[in-house]
Design a protein around this nucleic acid. Structure first.
Lengths: 191, 191
DNA sequence: GCTACACTATGACGACTGTTATAAACAAGG
DNA sequence: CCTTGTTTATAACAGTCGTCATAGTGTAGC
């Protein structure tokens, strides 16, 4: 029953801890404890050690958001944008501004050896995936190729940055301001 | 001679290490070594320990950027924007995408106790300072109050987020795309 | 000279880290 | 029953962390 269930709990728990504390402050011991899993099992499920667990956590978070984004983008790019920003808003207020995006978190801690390069590569793929989803939706609604790419990157970058600003200021004001500007931008381009 | 010089080296070195590795991975021992300062001296200059050193490093980085921003904003908001983005671009390429913004770095690592709350508060003040500088410049060029604030927040959030995207993807493409969109936005609003 | 004070040097403390090894428990298949 | 393989339990490793204490060096003022 709990065969691969413990594994999933480990990945989800790692993603949750990373988005709060960052990668370096997330210890395998605490992830295991939080997932009610023995420490020894961690290296059984993830022979690659911490970097493998972290990379899977990043991909897990990326796919979770990506799935939700795909569903909402079906109703148009502006609806996708609104859902994207609403999701981050919930993460912020639901954690009292203590949690953010795990993908961003791993992107701002250096990758000295080849170990963490795998994590960084996973993060890059997640960001690129979100951008591609948004850009495709914009193109489907008549936005030119170059403008669609630029707008998609702007949305992802501004949302990620705004989440960080909100955590620092412990307020949703930055995210709300960014939401207002992005929404009018996308409405003008694809409306 | 080196009275308060060693102190400044410690702060600047801490800022440099934080923007590369993040706060948790930046150890006082390495900061001291990198600044050619004995470890014991660190607690002489910073009785508040790591949190005080980190908070001063965040303020140091904030003031350095803020001074440059003030100078370029004198020529108008679009010139300020260009200089702001160019600065981050230099940080990225000059470090081969290994360095980013120390203020963002400390903002995405949880603050459990009251210690790190001081660091987070410093980061919030820095972000707010940059936003205020940009918003004031926009207002001086005829942009309405609300729109100026929204645009200023968008610029800071998008720039910070774009720097993180660039680090993950090891490319300046995200920052360049964001730059193109922001520039046309500010030109339309304050041109 | 000598006292006062800013700084350095050195070493230790308890706690935590990622990782590995080894032995025990457990399930399923024959 | 017994064997095979997956999962757990426990302990240990070498290293680093933030922090503190103590003794020593210097240098400036009287």
């Amino acid at each position: 029953m709990t065969e691969a269930d413990a594994r999933r709990r480990l990945v989800a728990g790692a993603a949750d801890m990373i988005r709060r504390r960052g990668l370096n402050a997330t210890s395998i011991r605490e992830v295991a404890k939080h997932a009610a899993t023995p420490l020894g099992s961690t290296y059984h499920y993830f022979p690659g050690g911490k970097q493998q667990l972290a990379a899977e956590a990043v991909r897990f978070a990326g796919e979770t958001v990506g799935r939700m984004l795909a569903g909402q983008l079906a109703a148009g790019p502006v609806d996708g944008l609104r859902a994207f920003l609403a999701l981050w808003r919930e993460v912020l207020v639901g954690s009292e501004f203590r949690a953010g995006c795990p993908v961003l978190a791993v992107s701002v801690e250096e990758a000295p050896d080849e170990d963490r390069l795998a994590v960084l590569t996973a993060a890059a793929a997640v960001f690129d995936g979100w951008e591609t989803q948004l850009a495709d939706s914009l193109r489907d609604h008549g936005v030119a190729d170059g403008e669609a790419e630029e707008l998609a990157t702007l949305v992802v970058a501004a949302a990620e940055g705004a989440v960080a600003l909100c955590r620092a200021q412990r307020s949703t004001v930055p995210l709300d301001r960014v939401a207002a500007r992005l929404e009018s931008l996308l409405t003008a381009a694809a409306g």
